[in-house]
Design a protein around this nucleic acid. Structure first.
Ligand SMILES: NC(=O)c1ccc[n+]([C@@H]2O[C@H](COP(=O)([O-])OP(=O)(O)OC[C@H]3O[C@@H](n4cnc5c(N)ncnc54)[C@H](O)[C@@H]3O)[C@@H](O)[C@H]2O)c1
Ligand SMILES: NC(=O)c1ccc[n+]([C@@H]2O[C@H](COP(=O)([O-])OP(=O)(O)OC[C@H]3O[C@@H](n4cnc5c(N)ncnc54)[C@H](O)[C@@H]3O)[C@@H](O)[C@H]2O)c1
Lengths: 210, 210
DNA sequence: CTTGATTTGTGATAAAGTTAACAGAAACAC
DNA sequence: GTGTTTCTGTTAACTTTATCACAAATCAAG
C-alpha cells in the first residue's frame, strides 16, 4: 500500500463513500453490501469493492462491510482521525455562510480563523470567532498551526492571496474564486465554482428555447 | 458530431476553458495557442486541442485560436446563447449568498425565483426578488419556464424537494446538500460539497500531527 | 452437517482517456 | 520568394480506469 501509487480518481471517491456511510451509521445501520451501497450512490458494486480493496480487506464475504468499522478505516485513510483547523479568507456573503455553517465538524474540520481586509469587517464576530486583519495571515496562520484555507475573496486578488497563504504554511486551499490558481508542487488545490456545474448541465439539457 | 457520443469528461472541461477565455477576452487579448492556454490552466496543449476539435476546427495553424470566436463557439456548444433562468430553493445562509451573487449573468445564468418554506422569510426581498412560498413551486416553476434550480435546503428535505422540482419541470439541479440525490433519467444533477474537496486534500497533506 | 444464497477480493478483459508525434497550414523574417 | 518558426487537427501508441466473472469465505436454514 504505497499512498502515492493509488490513483487520484479512487481517492476522489472515498469521501463520497464516507459521507454516505456516516449517514447510514447515524441512522443505526450496522452493515452494508457493495451492491446496496452502489444503489444508494448510483454507482456499481464492483467499483466500490475495487476502490476499498486498495487499502486492505475491510469486508466480509456473505455479510458485506461493517459500517462503523469501515467509517473508521476511511477516516484513517483520509487522515481524518483528528479534526483539522481551517481558515476562511474573505468574509463576504460566501465566507460568512461558510463561517456560520455547522456541518464541517462531523466531517473532520473546524473553522478557527477568519480574515478580511475591509476595516468595516475586521473585529466583528461570527459564531464566537473574530474577523482578523488579512495582513496578519503571515503570523497568525503558523501560530495557529493552520494547514488548510477556504478562499472566498474576489477573483482580482485570489492568486496573490493564495500565494500569501502558501508562504504562511498552508498546504491545501479550497478555492471559491472562479479562476484557476497556480500553486507550487505539494500544495493541494480544489476548485468550487457553481457556474461550471451549471454549464455542464446545460450541454445536456439543450437549448433554452426549442 | 453526435452530442451524446462525446465523452462526458470532455464536456466537463469545456466550462473551464470558457471561463478562462472569457477572462482573457475581457483583458483584451485576441488570440491564444493551446500551449499557452494549457500553461494557464495547468493542463496540456494536446488535451485542449483534442477536446476542442471534437466540435469542429476552430483554430488556425501558426496563430492559435481567436478568443472571441472560440468563446462564442463554446457558448453555443454549451447552450449558453441565451441566458437561463434559475431558481434558488432554500434561502438560508448559502441560498442568500447565491441570490446576492452578481457573477452568474456573465456565465449565462440569471436567478429569477427564490423559494423557502419559513414564514419568517417568505415575502422578504433580496436583490429585488421576493422570496416565495416553497409550496408554490409546482405552479411558479412552469409559469416562469424555469429549467434549472440550485438546491440549498437541509439534507433532511433535499431528496423530497428535488422530487418536487423535477415534477414541476426542472431539468437540472445543482445540489448543495451533502447527500447523493437519486433522480430520474434525463434530469441532470451536479453536487457541490466543500467537505468532499477538503477530504480529498487531507489524504495528500498527511497527518495533522507529525 | 449439508445445501443454497450471499458477498468479498481479485485476476483477466474491455473500455476509455491521455500523450506523443507529425503532416500540413499559416505567419514571419529578410 | 524562400526558409524558418509556429501551431492546429489527427492518427496511433500508450496508459489508465472500469467491468466482468469467479474462487473462496460466510451465513442461514433444515
Ligand atoms: N456569493 C456566491 O454565492 C458566490 C458564488 C460563486 C462564486 N463566488 C466567488 O466567491 C468569492 C467571494 O464571493 P462573495 O459573494 O462572498 O463576495 P464578496 O464581495 O461578498 O466578499 C468578498 C470579501 O473578500 C474581502 N476581501 C477583498 N480583498 C481581500 C483581501 N485582499 N484579503 C482578504 N479579504 C479580502 C472583501 O472585503 C469581502 O468581504 C468571489 O471570488 C466570488 O466570485 C461567490
Ligand atoms: N452554509 C454553508 O456554507 C454550507 C456549506 C456546505 C453545505 N451546505 C449545505 O447547504 C444547505 C443549506 O445550508 P445553509 O447553511 O444555507 O442552511 P440554512 O439552515 O441556513 O438554510 C436552509 C434554508 O432552507 C429552508 N428550508 C427548509 N426546508 C425547506 C423546504 N422543505 N422547502 C424550502 N425551503 C426549506 C430553511 O427555511 C432555510 O432558510 C444544507 O444542506 C447544508 O448542509 C451549506
Amino acid at each position: 500500500m504505497n499512498r502515492k501509487d493509488i490513483p487520484r480518481i479512487i481517492i476522489s471517491r472515498l469521501p463520497v463513500y464516507l459521507r454516505t456511510l456516516q449517514r447510514l451509521q447515524q441512522e443505526g445501520r450496522q452493515t452494508i453490501s457493495s451492491q446496496t451501497l452502489g444503489e444508494i450512490l448510483g454507482t456499481t458494486a464492483a467499483q466500490i469493492r475495487k476502490d476499498i480493496s486498495q487499502f486492505g480487506e475491510f469486508g466480509k464475504q456473505g455479510t458485506g462491510y461493517n459500517i462503523p468499522y469501515l467509517v473508521e478505516q476511511l477516516q484513517h485513510i483520509l487522515h481524518l482521525d483528528d479534526i483539522w483547523d481551517v481558515a476562511v479568507v474573505g468574509i463576504g456573503d460566501l465566507g460568512h455562510a461558510l463561517a456560520r455553517y455547522q456541518g464541517f465538524v462531523d466531517r473532520g474540520f473546524r473553522i478557527t480563523a477568519l480574515f478580511d481586509n475591509d476595516p468595516e469587517k475586521i473585529g466583528r464576530q461570527i459564531q464566537g470567532l473574530t474577523i482578523e486583519d488579512a495582513s496578519l495571515i503571515p503570523s497568525r496562520i503558523p501560530e495557529l498551526g493552520i494547514k488548510i484555507a477556504m478562499l472566498t475573496v474576489p477573483v482580482s486578488v485570489a492568486q496573490q492571496t493564495a500565494d500569501v497563504l502558501v508562504r504562511a504554511g498552508v498546504r491545501g486551499i479550497l478555492n471559491y474564486a472562479p479562476i484557476h490558481l497556480n500553486l507550487p508542487e505539494g500544495v493541494c488545490i480544489e476548485h468550487i465554482d457553481p457556474a461550471i456545474g451549471l454549464q455542464r448541465m446545460t450541454y445536456y439539457i439543450g437549448q433554452r428555447k426549442g
